[in-house]
Structure formats: C-alpha cells, structure tokens
Amino acid sequence: MQVLFARHQVRVYRFVLRFVGNQAVAEDLISEVFLDVWRQADRFEGRSAVSTWLLGIARFKALSSMRRKPDEELDEETAGAIEDSSDDPEVAVQKKDKGAALRKCLQTLSPEHQEVINLVYYHEKSVEEVAEIVGIPEATVKTRMFYARKRLSELLKAAGIDRGWP
C-alpha cells in the first residue's frame, strides 16, 4: 500500500485537482481514493493497470464531490496554482512564446477536452485505458481527442498562431 501510494499519489492528485480546482479538496479526495483501494484490494482483478483503476476511482470521487458542492469557488492560492499566471494567448504570441500560448489555450479547452488531453499526453493512457477511465467507447475516445486537438488549433489561430492544421 505504501509503495502504491508513493508511486501514484502525485499523478492521482494532479488528475483530481484538474477537476475540483481546490488543493485541500483534492488532497481529501485522494485520501479517500487510496482508502477505497485499501478496502477493495481483493476486488482488483488485474485486468487493467493499477494506475487506470486508481484514475477511474479518482474520477468518480471528483465528479461526486463536484455534484455535492457545485458552488464551491476556488481559493486564491489554488487558482494561482491552476491558472497559468502567464500572459493571455495574444500577449504570449506577441512575446513569441509559443509554448506559453499553447499552455494557455490548453487551459481554455472544455473540461471534457482537457480531460482526454491530460489522460493521453500526461498520464500516457492508451485508447482502451481512457475508454475505461472515462466510461465511453474507444471510438469516442479517438473522436474526442481529435476534436480537442482541433479546438486547440482554433484557439491558437485566434491568438495569432496558425499551425496549418486541421
């Protein structure tokens, strides 16, 4: 359990924080996630990676928490941690910082699009694993990722960066 916790806590925390937008809430939720894992250890069938199982539980808990507290606002410290403090995309482009503009646009995507982008790029989840975590068909995973990337290109274009795609 200790090894499991040490190995996965940071990624699970970041995944949950993206949903709930509050560090204290995210920390409470990951405690609950790992407590559930401890309680349900004998139910883990090993058909998927442990990290996929963890992220699935974490997602369910984060969404449940958001439904319980829909009006909870971000505290200032957390907002600072989540929102990129860099310039908006146009200003970033003027400063020729394409990476900053891209990060800003990534944060402007819808929650669904951000989720699939983060699961694929940061959590390195396969199509099948994203489908398992989010609870959607594999074909929808590919479509959602495609439209997330397309929307990202549109946002960048609006900010003055034409990537020539799509």
């Binding site: 916790f5 940071v10 970041r14 995210a26 990951i30 394409k98 990060r103 990202l152």
Partner: peptide
Amino acid sequence: REEMTEAILLNEALGVPSARVMENL
C-alpha cells in the same frame, strides 16, 4: 509532440500533495 510537451509542463506545475494526505490515509 508540441502539445504533449506543454500538457506535461502544465500538469507538472500543479505541484504535489502535502504530507497531510499520507497521515490522514
């Protein structure tokens, strides 16, 4: 790959949970 690089940087900037999490757990 550009998108992947920036998505990783964005997530890495979120920091890490405090020791309180392990204590509570």
